[in-house]
Design a protein around this nucleic acid. Structure first.
Length: 851
RNA sequence: GCGAGAGUGGCGGAAUUGGUAGACGCGCUGGUCUUAGGAACCAGUAUCCUCUGAUGUGGGGGUUCGAGUCCCCCCUCUCGUACCA
């Protein structure tokens, strides 16, 4: 046969057709049920990687499957185009961020098109287009008006040498990644979004998103961190001041033996006594030098210092010392903690270190805790002791009682506390959306009038990495007249956090060309919410929480009518590969290793851990090379077959070969039988081998439908089609039953189409169809073809398999039992023993229990 | 430290509700065809054993007629992380 599987030719042919005919362009159609499918859009770094291929292959299966099922599918793609890599490239190579970004977009778009993804490319946009970010500026103005955007002081990482603000990832061991100078905190006035106003709603809706992985919901709940507790006021001895603490454990108040304050606490200056002052200042300086991230990481060494002052426990009047401690943070609660070493592990460690008293106030039932014997804090429940009038009360009840008592005497009150803090959106960066604000000496902070939007990012800038954002030095950009009084004023030079752009791009896809506002409400309401969102687990909290918040903002500004942006969420696993290292040349790319030796020096290569593919470890496979060698269909098939989507995928070149071979097998199965099956009609109920193949065909249709639709288990769906193909090869009666063969082959082509669309369109055409496979509809299984007349049951004796019996499908239990007991090998195991019980599981097995 | 997952052949993985453990693919072995094959097709492939047998899903216990699946304890690995008072 001269018609060999030639993926290059086939894929080019269909991709050209898709480009010309735009069959995946979507429009509002109220006759059809809509289905909005979205994969997280990429940052245009210039090259796609295997993670992209996997993410978009998964999405494309769902898009094509839903389309075949008759849904009106929206499947867009675009670019998360603002961000630091563009600025870094500009600094290092002197290329303008805009040029760099748009060139990368062009090249990546080309690469994505070679994968054959069914996007509606007409809706593509980049977030750095002024047509996109102008609407973000408008939303900001409306948020500002409603008090949802405001300014407050906040600290940033500052490099004195570069005179610039650094992101957390630009700080290495507390030093600047460029000049290695020590990074210092610097206080700046910055813009914030009031996400805390939505804390309760964001939390409540985590219980109303059944299509989300429980794991992600639980992370978001913990991030919001709603806790019920109590604010208690401690009077300071010999002072008029009071220190307010927040605690979730008012039941342990009698066990408080000292107090810990954040070093930044406003009362520190007042409380420090003269003899402690020098030491305290030194301590504060030490803590300040500790990086933000180190301050809040798990294994921080707990250090503290006595202020010299004491405060009074409002319940028992006891005088306890006030300490400063590095693990107490000003940003949570009140920045002050009542320390109960017996029942809090951190306080316990602190008390041991500084020899502070420990007092047990909760006794577990049936046990006697003694202070001297404690090796760690007791944090479980129990009855109160050493607690005055509350002795003997269950500690859960005591939380309520003590809070109520404090409330009565005016020493405290019940409160709700959140861990969630407002979203800081100011960035001292060039490559981002300008914040539309003007500062006027006489009018103050003035919003840019809506009719003056967009505030366009100027392009005539030079990036050096020093001296802060180029916008803050760009005179034409900075100098404007105040919109209110007309006098000279200055523009805000900060730009938005790029998470703002990714918080609403999914909504803009529904109406990318709309010029009347951010969203064409009617169209947005038709498509939203996104029915299925697919992306990496690393976005479990930040991106997904911000997008949920921003959706609620858009709703409350009257721009759309949905409460939540994403009905279902699939978090896909990472693509991993073994790392390889040469003793002399360090990490090596796979192609730099031949027969376990480094191609640069011939030394034996050391194999490292299997890790997420990353450029720094060089354990990467270039998808472009793979596509060139095997074709896009093979690359797609492998990334889907190797593991279920939510699991990490370990790269293995041999598996790719296997997928390529399978497609070749499918290709030949159709081509070699083409003559035979041309003109074959619909199959009649058959018997023997033909009935078996029909059954296999319909079982496969059922299995693939269920695996793709309900479970996203693409690997098992593909395996099922492989089995059907194996059955086709084994089918001997093809001359007598060409129609049964035809039905099986057409099922294979239809079922595989979402996974490998190029080869399937080509084969569908070869099979004589005028319309494309995509429009042919998803195959439906015939229930009556699913079942055989006979069924084989396993016979166990005492839970061990001892034989098999084949009975009629409708055989009654009595008959089954008789047949099972009569089976030869089963007889050997029940001989001379008493049958105590026979368990029959219909269609599966019989278990004979003997004594 | 805390939280969430995961541990199944030589490898990736399957087993959807407690019901034949290892589907499917890779690799390996043998065969057919061939000048040849690293192509294609067919067959075999958890381990041990002379067996119509025994063992086997990280380890140890338990529930059950029956456990990879449920419960308890332990070990290892991965991911996330904010000492949250």
């Amino acid at each position: 046969m001269d018609n060999l599987y030639n993926p290059k030719e086939i894929e080019a042919k269909w991709q050209k057709l898709w480009q010309e005919k735009q069959p995946f362009a979507a429009s509002v159609d109220t006759e059809k049920e809509k289905y909005y499918l979205l994969e997280m859009f990429p940052y245009p770094s210039g090259r796609i990687h295997m993670g992209h291929v996997r993410n978009y292959a998964i999405g494309d299966v769902v898009a094509r499957f839903k389309r075949m099922q008759g849904f009106n599918v929206l499947h867009p793609m675009g670019w998360d185009a603002f961000g630091m890599p563009a600025e870094n490239a500009a600094i290092e190579h002197g290329i303008h961020p805009a040029k760099w970004t748009y060139e990368n977009i062009e090249s990546m778009q080309h690469q994505l098109k070679k994968i054959g993804l069914s996007y509606d490319w007409k809706r593509e946009f980049a977030t750095c287009d002024a047509d996109y970010y102008r609407w973000e500026q408008l939303v900001f103005l409306q948020m500002f008006e409603k008090g949802l955007a405001y300014k407050k002081g906040s600290s940033v990482n500052w490099c004195e040498d570069c005179q610039t603000v650094l992101a957390n990832e630009q700080v290495e061991d507390g030093c600047c990644w460029r000049c290695h100078n020590l990074v210092q905190p610097k206080e700046l006035e910055q813009w914030f979004f009031k996400i805390t106003d939505y804390a309760d709603e964001l939390l409540e809706w985590t219980d109303k998103l059944p299509g989300w992985p429980e794991r992600v919901l639980s992370m978001q709940r913990n991030w919001i961190g709603k806790s019920y507790g109590c604010e208690i006021e401690f009077a300071v001895a010999d002072h008029s001041e009071k220190v307010k603490v927040f605690t979730t454990r008012p039941d342990t108040l009698f066990g408080a033996t000292f107090m810990s304050l954040a070093p930044e606490h406003p009362l520190v200056k007042t409380l420090v006594t003269a003899e402690q002052e020098a030491k305290i200042n030194e301590f504060i300086a030490t803590v300040e030098r500790q990086e933000k991230s180190a301050r809040t990481s798990g294994d921080l060494e707990k250090i503290g210092i006595f202020t010299g002052s004491y405060c009074i426990n409002p319940l028992n009047g006891e005088k306890i010392p006030i300490f400063l401690a590095n693990f107490v943070l000003m940003g949570y609660g009140t920045g002050a903690v009542m320390a109960v070493p017996a029942h809090d592990q951190r306080d316990f460690e602190f008390a041991k270190k500084y020899q502070l008293p420990i007092r047990v106030v909760i006794q577990p039932e049936g046990e006697e805790l003694a202070t001297e014997q404690l090796t760690e804090a007791y944090t479980d429940s129990g009855l109160l002791t050493n607690s005055g009038q509350f002795n003997g009360v269950d500690n859960e009840a005591a939380k309520e009682q003590i809070a109520a008592f404090l409330d009565e005497c005016g020493e405290g009150r019940k409160t709700v506390n959140y861990r969630l803090r407002d979203w800081g959106v100011s960035r001292q960066r060039y490559w981002g959306t300008p914040i539309p604000i003007i500062y006027c000496a006489s009018c103050g902070t003035v919003p840019v009038p809506e009719e003056d939007l967009p505030v366009v990012l100027p392009t005539d800038v030079k990036l050096t990495g020093e001296g802060g954002s180029p916008l803050s030095r760009h005179q034409e950009f900075l100098n404007v007249n105040c919109p209110k009084c007309g006098k000279p004023a200055k523009r805000e030079s900060d730009t938005f956090d790029t998470f703002v752009e990714s918080s609403w791009y999914f909504a803009r896809y529904t109406c990318p060309d709309y010029t009347g506002g951010p969203l064409d409400k009617e169209v947005a309401n038709y498509w939203l919410p996104v029915d299925q969102y697919i992306g990496g687990i690393e976005h479990a909290v930040m991106h997904l929480l911000y997008a949920r918040f921003y959706t609620k903002i858009l709703r409350d500004l009257g721009m759309l009518d949905v409460d939540e942006p994403f009905t279902k969420l699939l978090t896909q696993g990472m693509v991993c590969k073994e790392t390889q290292r040469c003793p002399e040349h360090g990490w090596l790319y796979p192609e730099q290793v031949v027969d376990g030796k480094c191609t640069l020096c011939g030394q034996t290569v050391v194999l490292g851990r299997t890790e997420k593919m990353s450029k720094s470890k060089k354990n990467v496979v270039d998808p472009n090379q793979l596509i060139d060698q095997y074709g896009a269909d093979t690359a797609r098939l492998f990334s889907l077959f190797a593991a279920p989507p939510e699991k990490d995928l370990e790269w293995n070149e041999q598996g790719v070969e296997g997928c390529y071979r399978f497609l070749g097998r499918v290709w030949r199965a159709v081509n070699e039988n083409l003559e035979l099956i041309t003109g074959a009609g619909l199959p009649d109920p058959a018997s023997g081998e033909a009935a078996d193949l029909r059954r296999k065909t319909h079982q496969t249709i059922k299995k693939v439908s269920e695996d793709v639709d309900d479970r996203f288990h693409f690997n098992t769906a593909i395996a099922a089609v492989m089995e059907l193909v194996n059955a086709i090869y084994a089918f001997k009666s093809r001359q007598e039953y060409p129609e049964v063969l035809r039905e099986a082959l057409e099922a294979v082509v239809c079922l595989l189409n979402p996974f490998v669309p190029h080869i399937c369109e080509e084969l569908w055409q070869l099979l004589g169809h005028q319309e494309g496979v995509e429009t042919s509809g998803w195959p439906v299984w015939d229930e009556s073809a699913l079942f055989a007349d006979e069924v084989t049951l396993v016979v166990q004796v005492n839970g061990k398999v001892r034989g098999k019996v084949t009975v009629a499908v409708d055989a009654d239990k009595q008959l089954i039992e008789t047949a099972a007991l009569a089976e030869q090998n089963v007889q050997r195991f029940i001989e001379g023993k008493q049958v105590r019980k026979v368990v029959i599981v219909p269609g599966r097995l019989i278990n004979i229990v003997v004594s």
